[in-house]
């Protein structure tokens, strides 16, 4: 028996929004410790890694580890039927070929359940090596989303240059070029608005704007985002999900031909 309950369906809706642009379907690996998802997009350029810890749920029971392959468009249709403040419970029997979502309104006057067929997904898992990153940038997630959206209008590739002083995002294309420089701030009283940089050595890497835009669909999950970079390794974009876990996106850099 598997059962996981969250008092706010809004959180699960946001998690789904954060992954469904990159993935059509995904396997949710459920165990004692929580729910994990790891999947590459179809073109094998980016990877989504989601962890929802069991202790972050209002109720969590997983007698036997199970993998639930879900079509994310179908899951999205179901979650649209929940109000943001509904309690949501995800249920499955051991070895089941369906999963059930139960939505309960706050006053319990409305209870609905939606059963969805599970899929057998032959998903590849990747071993992600531990990396000591040369640069770790922390900034407001809304600011990152704004920069990516603004710059993507002017080119397909963004160059991210990080030094101790700050981080520069640059794009060039047919129209011309655009640069956004963010300086490290010392907003100790407004930590949520600060830009901080931990740098071992400067890094400059190029990435496809289109993927960064997809990653920013996770913005509603967290006020902060963390970008980790080292030369010649994938970028890691991480959003913490308060008291529940995190979503990390990995993106292979573009290299000069």
């Amino acid at each position: 028996m598997f059962e996981a309950r969250l008092t706010s369906a809004a959180t699960l809706k946001k998690v789904l929004e954060a992954v469904k642009e990159l993935l059509n379907e995904a396997s949710f690996d459920c165990s004692d410790s929580g729910i994990q998802l790891q999947a590459m997009d179809n073109s094998h350029v980016s990877l989504v890694s989601l962890t929802l810890r069991s202790d972050g749920f209002d109720k969590y029971r997983c007698d036997r580890s199970l993998t639930m392959g879900m079509n994310l468009a179908s899951m999205s249709k179901i979650l649209k039927c929940a109000n943001n403040d509904d309690t949501v419970t995800i249920k499955a029997q051991d070895d089941a070929d369906t999963v059930t979502f139960v939505f309960e309104s706050k006053k319990q006057e409305k209870i609905s359940d939606y059963e969805m067929k599970l899929m057998n997904l032959d998903q590849e898992h990747l071993g992600i090596p531990e990396t000591d990153f040369s640069c770790v940038i922390r900034m407001p997630s809304v600011e990152f989303a704004r920069i990516v959206r603004d710059l993507a209008q002017f080119g397909e590739t963004v160059l991210i240059c990080c030094t101790k002083e700050g981080v520069k995002f640059s794009v060039s294309g047919d129209v011309g070029s655009a640069n956004v420089k963010l300086a490290q701030t010392n907003n100790f009283d407004k930590e949520e608005e600060s830009v901080s940089i931990e740098m071992q050595e400067p890094v400059s890497l190029s990435f496809a704007c289109q993927y960064l835009i997809s990653f920013t669909k996770a913005t509603p999950l967290s006020p902060r985002v963390q970008l980790s970079m080292s030369s010649n390794v994938p970028l890691v974009v991480e959003y913490e999900i308060a008291e529940l876990g995190y979503i990390r996106y990995y993106l292979a850099p573009k290299i000069e031909d």
Binding site: H125, L126, G127, P129, A252
Partner: peptide, 14 residues
């Protein structure tokens, strides 16, 4: 123009 690398160049399949 820079070309897009594949993620599996960096991470091994397990």
């Amino acid at each position: 123009t820079p070309i897009q690398n594949d993620l599996t160049e960096y991470f091994s399949l397990i």
